[in-house]
Amino acid sequence: MSVGQVTLPVTGKSRCVLITGATGAIGGALAQAYATPTTHLVLHGRNQSSLETLATACREKGASVSLSSAHLTDDSELTAWLDSVCAQHVPDIVIANAGINTHPHDNALEPWDEVQALLDINLKAPIAMAQRLVPAMQARGSGQLVFISSLAGWHGLPTTPSYSASKAGIKAYGEGLRGLLAPHGIGVTVVMPGYVTSPMCNAMPGPKPWEWPPERAANAIQRGVAANRARISFPFPLNFGTWWLAVLPAGLSQWLIKRFGFHHSGGV
């Protein structure tokens, strides 16, 4: 396995799916959902041991797999990796799933170094990936970009202000990109999950209503991507409630957030 580049095996696979953050709960479930004998998976993650274990499981389902742990925040390393992938097979589906979170502590703002790292991974890296991949997809005339936002993107939460900002930003970027790229045959889907069982979710304080297992989330995402849906948001009750936070007067929304227990702990 190469850190900056991958070498794709020469196969008769008809579809190439690239997933970042593949060692996370949703990323791993997505990899397994897409693992078929007609698929080549390009899986990215920082935990190499977990990545190898996931690759083995996907190969057992018949998929061919290439791995990378390129630094997504290093422009030259990211460019070298994506150029290497595209030189052999421009990905048909790209799921920019890598993400991190941070929380305020003791009524203080999140540490600035944590905020910078969060914005680099959650917002800047997916945009940088699009910059490298879109020209290749345009030249081919097809492709699908999938950006992972969050229901926290509907309205900023006091327990995760920087995370909320990053997810609102990637939501807006994906929505804008969809209209820009549609004439080129490129679909763009924004995914807005609620609580999905994972170490990141477990680390979030506060209530976690309608929590889904990662396999259920992956199935919903896969169906929505196949239909080129503009937005995939779940679960319905939580999505409906958080959507209202975006359309109600801000003062009322913030009062509701406090009433539901997200003023001291929590996050979506």
Rank of each mutant, 00 (worst) to 15 (best):
P111A: 11
M192H: 04
C201Q: 12
D113A: 15
D120V: 08
A182D: 14
R223M: 09
V3W: 11
C86E: 04
G45K: 00
G12M: 10
I221V: 12
L72A: 06
G176V: 13
I19H: 00
V146G: 01
T73W: 03
T23C: 06
G174M: 04
L109P: 09
V42N: 03
S64K: 04
T39G: 06
I170T: 10
A125Q: 05
Q32G: 06
F234K: 11
V196N: 00
T160M: 14
R259P: 04
A227S: 14
K167E: 02
V6R: 02
M192K: 06
M129R: 08
G224S: 05
N97V: 01
I95F: 02
A108N: 15
I127C: 07
S150F: 10
A96V: 08
T11R: 10
A218S: 06
I170P: 00
A130K: 07
L123N: 01
G174F: 06
A98V: 00
L51G: 03
L248A: 11
A29P: 03
H263D: 15
W210P: 00
T159C: 11
S69P: 03
Q32H: 04
E77V: 07
N219L: 15
G266N: 00
E110D: 12
F147A: 08
G45H: 00
A22F: 04
P214N: 08
